[in-house]
Each structure stands twice: as structure tokens, then as C-alpha cells.
């Protein structure tokens, strides 16, 4: 909120907002409304979803697509996998990104180091799929191992592991790809926030005799907290939407299904179910939205 002494015209805020709001209304809000409508219709969007009900089996009427999204065994697998991704990958990327942003500041090869962590995102155009094939692949016949990890395992005298088709190893392998891909993102945003910290504050802490560790926890983390929350929110969204890694590497087979992959797989053949899954994603966002509003208010009260 503006400082009390600053005046503004009645329409001024809307002049600042209007271009962005118009474009978002057209490109996101309108399709979202469309999505919600379609989620109550059948697979070809011609009749109510209730027509898919089979006699003698559970039926949620017009919410039939939501019954699929919430009770089907593949969707349950996807929901639990997304939960696991949230629990492991969000803290993983944010803490690795923060640690790296803080540490890299203190060495002379900062730019090179940061660009190495950033690189995966820049090369993701062909999909992390091909890259990680050279890490995870297994040769089961008589040939040499062409995946680095299995080559190491076999070199040490072990048996090669089918990383992609063995549950739950495959889930963790996919999450490692996610962390590898997204840590650079967290690092860049957090580094921008750290650079924006007033240097007096950090110097003052050091003059007071705080160790590096204390400065980090007691001074830096609280000051960067708003950005940590922003990055955490963004990573939560990214993890809820994660799809390409799974699609390319396992296709959702072997127990690795995730929500967004299911949505994408059904988008053509069953628009009703696909849009219901998309609507479910939006519902899952509500807690994140509430949390952000609270923080928004708090930040304004504090300043």
C-alpha cells in the first residue's frame, strides 16, 4: 500500500494494470472458464459428463470426470507421486539454490559456477530426456553399459540397475532430474534478492562478530525470506505442473505417473477427464493462494 502521504488519482492504478489484466483475461482467465465448463461434459464435449455413468457402478452424475480424477487408481498413483515430488523437490531445489547463491558470492569464479548451475535450464530444449539417458540407461544383454551410473556400479562389481522400470527408484531418479533442472532457477532469483540486500546490514553483523553461519541464519535468511517464499511458491506450482520429465523418461509407466502427464495424455481422447484434472490442479492451488495473501498483508503491515 502506498505511503499515506502519497496521493494518487482514482484511475491511476487501473492505467498501470489494464494492459496486463486485459491480456491475462483473454489468454488465461477465459480459457480457464472454458476448462471448467468442459470438465462437466463427456469425452467429446458434446453431452453432460453424467452419460459416462455405468449402471451398477459408482456415479457422481455431472461430476463423473471428477470421480475419475479423485478415485481412479492411476490418478491416485499420480496424486501420491505429486505429493512426494512436492515434499522432496521443492525444499531440495530451494535450499540447494539458496546455498549456492550464498556460497558463490564469496568466490572469484562466481560467474562460471553460477552458469554451470544455470546450464541445465538452457539446454532443456531437447528435453532432459536424452541427457539423462546417458546417466540412467541399462544394458541388459552382453553389451557394455552406456549409462554412467550403471557403468560405475558394474565397474565396482555390482549388478546393473534398471533405474527407469524399478519402482520406487525410478520416482527418485526423476526427481533428481527435476532438482538438476530447477536449482539454477531458484539460484538466479535468490541471488538477485541477495544482491539487493543492503551491504551495511551484512557488514554490521560481521563487525558484531557473528560467524558466517550466524550471519546467514540470523541476518540473511530473514531478509531474503520474502523471496524465498516467492521461489517456494513458484516451485510448488512447477512441481504441480511437472510433466515433461516424466513424459520423456518413463511415459508415466512403472508407477511414476503424475497429475499433469495424465492431463496431457487425455487431452485429445477424453477432454472431459483432462479438463477435470486441470480444474483439480487449480483447486490444489487454493491453499497456496491463501498463504500468499496472508504474506502479502503482513509485508504491507510491516513496512
Amino acid at each position: 500500500m502506498m505511503p499515506a502521504i502519497m496521493k494518487q488519482g482514482k484511475w491511476a492504478p487501473w492505467l498501470y494494470l489494464l494492459p496486463a489484466l486485459l491480456i491475462m483475461a483473454l489468454f488465461i482467465a477465459f480459457p480457464t472458464f472454458n476448462t471448467v465448463v468442459l470438465s462437466f461434459m463427456d469425452r467429446t464435449s458434446t453431452q453432460s459428463a453424467a452419460v459416462d455413468c455405468v449402471q451398477g457402478q459408482p456415479c457422481w452424475g455431472i461430476f463423473e470426470n471428477y470421480r475419475y480424477a479423485l478415485t481412479n487408481s492411476i490418478m491416485l498413483n499420480a496424486l501420491s507421486n505429486n505429493a512426494l515430488w512436492l515434499i522432496l523437490m521443492v525444499p531440495g531445489t530451494v535450499s540447494a539454490g539458496l546455498l549456492f547463491a550464498v556460497l558463490a558470492e564469496r568466490v572469484r569464479y562466481e560467474k562460471i559456477a553460477k552458469s554451470i548451475i544455470f546450464m541445465p535450464m538452457a539446454i532443456s530444449f531437447i528435453g532432459a530426456g536424452i541427457i539423462w539417458q546417458f546417466m540412467y540407461s541399462i544394458t541388459s544383454g552382453g553389451g557394455q553399459q552406456t549409462g554412467l551410473l550403471n557403468a560405475i556400479i558394474v565397474g565396482l562389481g555390482g549388478q546393473p540397475v534398471a533405474f527407469m522400470s524399478t519402482y520406487p527408484i525410478n520416482d527418485f531418479c526423476l526427481m533428481i532430474v527435476g532438482v538438476w533442472l530447477w536449482t539454477g532457477f531458484c539460484m538466479t532469483i535468490l541471488a538477485a534478492a541477495i544482491k539487493n540486500l543492503p551491504s551495511e546490514v551484512l557488514e554490521a553483523a560481521q563487525v558484531d562478530g557473528a560467524t558466517g553461519w550466524q550471519t546467514f541464519w540470523k541476518v540473511m535468511v530473514p531478509l531474503v525470506m520474502p523471496t524465498i517464499v516467492v521461489v517456494t511458491t513458484t516451485m510448488t506450482i512447477n512441481v504441480l505442473k511437472v510433466f515433461d520429465i516424466v513424459f520423456v523418461m518413463t511415459g508415466g509407466n512403472y508407477g511414476t505417473e503424475v497429475i499433469a502427464n495424465r492431463m496431457f495424455q487425455l487431452i485429445v481422447t477424453d477432454t472431459g477427464r483432462s479438463t477435470a484434472i486441470a480444474a483439480l490442479l487449480i483447486v490444489l492451488m487454493i491453499p497456496v493462494m491463501i498463504f500468499n495473501i496472508r504474506r502479502f498483508q503482513k509485508q504491507e503491515e510491516m513496512r
Binding site: F27, P31, I282
Partner: peptide, 22 residues
Amino acid sequence: QWLFAILVGLQIVPLQMALVPI
């Protein structure tokens, strides 16, 4: 506040949902 909340929520909308309408 409400507008900002909606803005946060819009980030989750998968762009695949916009392809056909747009």
C-alpha cells in the same frame, strides 16, 4: 488483494487448456 490472489492462482493454469479456445 483478491486480484492478487487470482494472479497467484492463474500461474497453475496449464497452457494446453488455452490452445483450442485461443
